[in-house]
Design a protein around this nucleic acid. Structure first.
Lengths: 186, 205
DNA sequence: GCTTTAAAAAGTAATAT
DNA sequence: ATATTACTTTACAAAGC
């Protein structure tokens, strides 16, 4: 039997950083090709990188949010590109801005079908949220690591809210052992 | 001091008026849905608890009242879908759903997922289907759910498919459209669930 | 609370062919 | 009748309404 941990795949990484400089987004929007800026709709300017694929939200304060990357390395690579693009516009950017990972979205596969109804009762109705009329996944919040897991009937799951890749592994371990001791991993 | 006293009276009156409004709304919606008085009472209790726990702050009175009624119907074993509930409420489906999840969680209602079988009597009655069809539909739901086919599926679509299948098996055929209209799901959903159920039952459709 | 961005899971729905 | 597109849920940051 394949260890579910081996099936873990990072789907999205959200991180924040800042260039330590205020920006005139109106002029950045003019000079940066591909930039989407509509302050009426949203205060941030959207800039997309192709390789690695990601979207950066650039704010007037100089703070930046990067999302869509498939790894923490990709986040750094994407932001390096964004920083260089801004420097090309003769905007001063700190040498090595601190990048903080805020959220990592992961998918995995437990390898067997899940009876969500039985799991809802087994884990305790007060600990889960399962409303198939609204969403097919069972929402399970863990305390340690502090993440949220979405369990599906197929045995696949999504783990989000983690700050490091290891969080997903620990979460999968806990979920697997918990379901096993409940005898719900058929 | 007199001002403070008057303010308290005013606040108390406003609170009373809001409660009266909420309870009358529950009553109005319950009547429109045709649910028994016991359900309205359960809904009222849930609403009062939500009020006591200060869960209404940041939400509309109507939204909490509607969610309380939705929860009460489920608790009493005669569920109405969010679609049906939203038709008698001025709150949209999505808001009712998220408010329901919130009060359910905060009040610790420990709501079990809706059993599709709970929809069978009402849907079959609206379709004028016999007792035999109802039993067959229940059997299909029971059997296929035990095999894990129910996980993640909406109770109304699941019940609709079983009723459609049962109507065929009992020679009281209703079209997918007729069943879909009563259950308020699409024909595509009925087709998808029907295929899975038939296969799991080992019936040849 | 909302707005925007990204991505997965699986079900449902609206629309197109 | 099927295929495509889009929306539901989770988490998170940013600035402003």
């Amino acid at each position: 039997m394949t260890d579910p941990k081996e099936t873990i795949n990072i789907e999205n990484v959200v991180a924040s950083t800042g260039i330590g400089q205020e920006l005139d987004l109106q002029s950045v929007a003019m000079d940066l090709e591909g930039a989407d800026y509509d302050p009426e709709q949203f205060p941030g300017l959207v800039y997309r990188t192709q390789d690695p694929k990601s979207a950066a939200l650039i704010f007037r304060s100089g703070k930046i949010v990067c999302t869509g990357a498939k790894s923490t390395d990709d986040v750094h690579e994407s932001l390096r590109i964004v920083f260089d693009k801004l420097r090309e516009l003769s905007i001063k950017v700190e040498d090595d801005p601190e990048i903080v990972v805020q959220n990592i979205v992961t998918s995995a596969d437990l390898g067997r079908q899940l009876n969500l109804n039985a799991i809802a009762i087994g884990l305790g109705l007060e600990n889960i949220e399962y409303e198939p009329e609204q969403f097919p996944g069972l929402v399970y919040r863990l305390d340690e690591p502090e993440v949220v897991a979405l369990l599906f009937g197929s045995g696949k799951l999504v783990i989000t809210g983690g700050k490091k890749p290891k969080d997903a592994e620990h979460a999968v371990d806990k979920i697997t052992s918990r379901l096993e001791e409940l005898g719900l991993l058929e | 001091r007199l001002r403070k006293w008057q303010e308290r009276i005013r606040t108390k009156d406003a609170g009373e008026r809001n409660l009266q409004f909420a309870l009358s709304e529950i009553d109005r919606m319950a009547s429109a849905l045709g649910v028994p008085r016991s359900v309205r009472e359960v809904a009222s209790v849930i609403y009062r608890r939500a009020l006591k726990e200060d869960l209404i702050r940041g939400r509309s009175i109507e939204g909490v009242a509607t969610s309380a009624l939705y929860a009460a119907c489920r608790k009493e074993g005669i569920p109405r879908s969010l679609e049906e509930i939203s038709e008698v409420s001025r709150v949209e489906r999505k808001e009712i759903g998220r408010t329901y999840r919130y009060i359910s969680q905060e009040l610790g209602l420990e709501m079990k997922p809706v059993d599709p079988k709970k929809y069978v009597p009402r849907f079959c009655s609206e379709l004028e289907l016999s007792e035999e069809v109802q039993s067959k539909a229940n059997e299909i739901i029971e059997t296929t759910a035990e095999e894990g086919l129910l996980s993640g599926k909406s109770p109304t679509g699941y019940a609709a498919a079983a009723i459609y299948a049962a109507s065929l098996l009992c020679n009281e055929k209703k079209t997918q459209r007729e069943v879909a209209d009563v259950a308020q799901v699409t024909e595509v959903t009925i087709r998808n669930r029907y295929q899975e159920q038939i296969e799991a039952m080992g019936i040849h459709g």
